[in-house]
Computed example of a mutant assay.
Amino acid sequence: MFICASKVNGGLYTTTKDYPDEAVHFARSHPLMYQPIKPVHKRPILVKTDGKYNLKQIAVDRVEAEDGQYDVLFIGTDNGIVLKVITIYNQETESMEEVILEELQVFKVPVPIISMEISSKRQQLYVGSESVIAQVKFHQCDMYGTACADCCLARDPYCAWDGISCSRYYPTGMQAKRRFRRQDVRHGNAAQQCFGQQFIGEVLEKTEERLVYGIEYNSTLLECTPRTLQAKVIWFIQRAHEAKKEEVNILIA
């Protein structure tokens, strides 16, 4: 066994110049890294450029979905947020698609996350700061709503439409009682997965609309939370005696 030359450790060699020929020959023939190690597709798995937070910790859970295996990345930030992310490689374009499934504010006070551990058996993520430890579920399938289309559009590998609700997905052989499963993580194609389901035509052909009345020169609360981060909320304003609608530009502080 060879150790690094150091005056502190009190070893036989205080400098590499003192190494015998045997040690030098062994080091030359056994490099720690002969070639650089690159990601599977020779490009970064995840790139964040928005600057809202710094990425501090990462934990990965490998999930078996209907259309293959996915590595779910749980990424802890410096303001107490955990990102639940998957990346999908497009072989035709040789590009990576980043899908943020959830953005969870774990702590009441936005403090840096300094440690993260996963338990695949318990399906839990344990997140730690300097003073607090939090426990987070891998999946909350019921939050994606009660429609097949909503469940499939979420693209969450943990969840699938079972014919009744959006629930935990189990690989073939583990879900005998739930024979009807609809899931498409790679494309999120609800039209194909939910074909023939009740109300599917209405869901896909017409977006959900909410009408809110406001008083001129007064403030009005526009509240609408999308079920998943893949959904988008757009507000339009229609003034009195006007048929035309204008899109409202919303600034989020």
Rank of each mutant, 00 (worst) to 15 (best):
Q135P: 02
H41L: 12
T87R: 07
Q105S: 14
L12S: 08
P36Q: 06
L222D: 02
E216M: 10
S219R: 10
Q69D: 14
V60D: 06
K245A: 04
N218C: 08
D67W: 02
Q198P: 08
I237Q: 02
I234P: 01
V111K: 03
S167F: 02
E130V: 15
I234S: 07
T207D: 15
N54Q: 03
L221E: 06
E103F: 00
M174Q: 11
E242M: 07
D18N: 12
Q193H: 08
N249V: 13
Y89L: 04
P112D: 05
V212Q: 04
K177I: 15
Y158I: 02
M116G: 01
E247S: 10
P44H: 09
D21A: 14
T220R: 04
Y70V: 00
I237E: 04
A253T: 07
F74W: 08
Q175T: 15
E209P: 06
P171V: 05
T225Y: 07
M143Y: 08
G80S: 00
M174P: 03
T14M: 13
H25K: 15
Y213T: 14
S219C: 10
V106D: 05
D71L: 09
G128F: 01
R62N: 08
Q230T: 14
G10H: 01
Q183M: 12
Q230L: 11
A231R: 13
E208K: 12
V203I: 14
V233P: 00
L101I: 09
Q230V: 08
C166E: 03
S131V: 15
T207R: 14
S131P: 09
Q57D: 06
Q135H: 05
A65D: 02
M1S: 06
D18G: 12
A231M: 13
R210C: 13
I75Y: 01
S219F: 11
E209T: 14
L73H: 11
W235T: 04
H139R: 13
T225A: 07
E103Q: 06
T49G: 09
C159V: 09
H139E: 14
H139A: 15
D61F: 03
L73C: 06
C151K: 09
V8Y: 05
Y13V: 01
D67Q: 00
E205D: 08
A231T: 10
C194Y: 03
A59D: 06
E97V: 09
R239G: 03
T225P: 02
T77L: 02
N249C: 07
I58C: 11
E92C: 08
K108D: 14
L229H: 10
G51S: 04
V99P: 01
K17S: 15
I100H: 10
E117S: 13
K42Y: 05
D184Y: 12
N54W: 03
V40C: 11
Q197L: 09
G80W: 00
C159S: 08
V72A: 00
Y170M: 07
Q124M: 11
K232M: 08
S120E: 08
V60N: 06
A243C: 12
M116W: 01
R227C: 02
D21Q: 10
P20Q: 06
P31C: 08
T49F: 14
W161R: 08
E247A: 12
G10M: 01
A240F: 08
Q193F: 10
Q197W: 11
D18H: 13
F74K: 03
C166G: 03
